[in-house]
Design a protein around this nucleic acid. Structure first.
Lengths: 144, 144
DNA sequence: CACAATTTAATTGTGTGCTATTTAATGATC
DNA sequence: GATCATTAAATAGCACACAATTAAATTGTG
């Protein structure tokens, strides 16, 4: 018992490969918007609630400043967000949507349905699987 | 119905963040071996069965030559694998373990158990979740 | 046999991810 | 109120990922 396994037997590889497969389904949906998948996550977080610090965004999309800073700068270069120092605390950068960034939400409303259809799951089954995977994530984070 | 969602409600983000969390659990386990997670997948595939072409490795670990070629070259530079053209078909590169690469398997046998414990799941529950996620992957790949 | 089509790796360029370090601003302690 | 510790972003360097292209070898068809 308990020796090395081929990737096809690993839970980690199931996550890894399913995450890649998900990315590949997103890619053609996001290409017309000019967004990558992590950029889409950031936009979705801002559509949910505008004006967030880089740190808050990082906790919502599971990325640190090393990844987020250049990513948000690319969104800024595309004219979708703006970055401003918080006058109350100059250490913080507040990322907020521009009019163009807000307007893009309307062009993205079809995406969740497209993804759900690609999974071939019912909405309930997808929600249940999502929660199970989030619980796995919580356990893994607690272990680290 | 069917508008944009915050990341916390997305199945895709559950996969994405759980995959990152998994990577973070692996990192300290692999650091003593000097391997990254994708490199570990390649080594695991070769421990299961030695001597595979880049293409075969790619299908087993879900990566293409653009990622695999430099990754395998780094494993070669570490002395863990060797790369040889197949004399029967000079287009193919056969990746095989060196003695050092084979010997490393013994230093990795504890890892699956560590990962299972980090999930806080029983072996059965982990296997069931793994299969469910693999089925999701299959559906997503069929949609693409 | 010739030669077009296919297949396999390698290469190039962009965009993540992450660690470690640096810089600047804030807060705590004396 | 000067100094130290903490915090938030930014930066630098390495290693994936992936699309698109290139180059070489093989196969298929006439």
């Amino acid at each position: 018992m308990s020796g090395t396994l081929p990737p096809a037997d690993m839970l980690c590889f199931a996550l890894y490969s399913a995450s890649h497969a998900m990315n590949r389904v997103y890619r053609p949906l996001l290409e017309p918007l000019g967004l990558t998948y992590p950029q889409y996550l950031v936009m979705a977080a801002l559509w949910d609630e505008d004006e967030k610090t880089v740190k808050t965004l990082g906790s919502l999309v599971d990325l640190d400043s090393g990844t987020l800073t250049p990513l948000v700068k690319r969104l800024e270069a595309s004219g979708l967000v703006q970055r401003d120092r918080n006058p109350q605390d100059e250490r913080e950068v507040i990322v907020s949507l521009t009019d163009k960034g807000r307007a893009m939400q309307a062009d993205a409303t079809h995406i969740p349905q497209c993804i759900l259809e690609a999974t071939t799951l019912s909405a309930d089954a997808a929600g249940e699987l999502r929660d199970r995977i989030f619980r796995l994530r919580t356990a893994l984070e607690a272990a680290g």
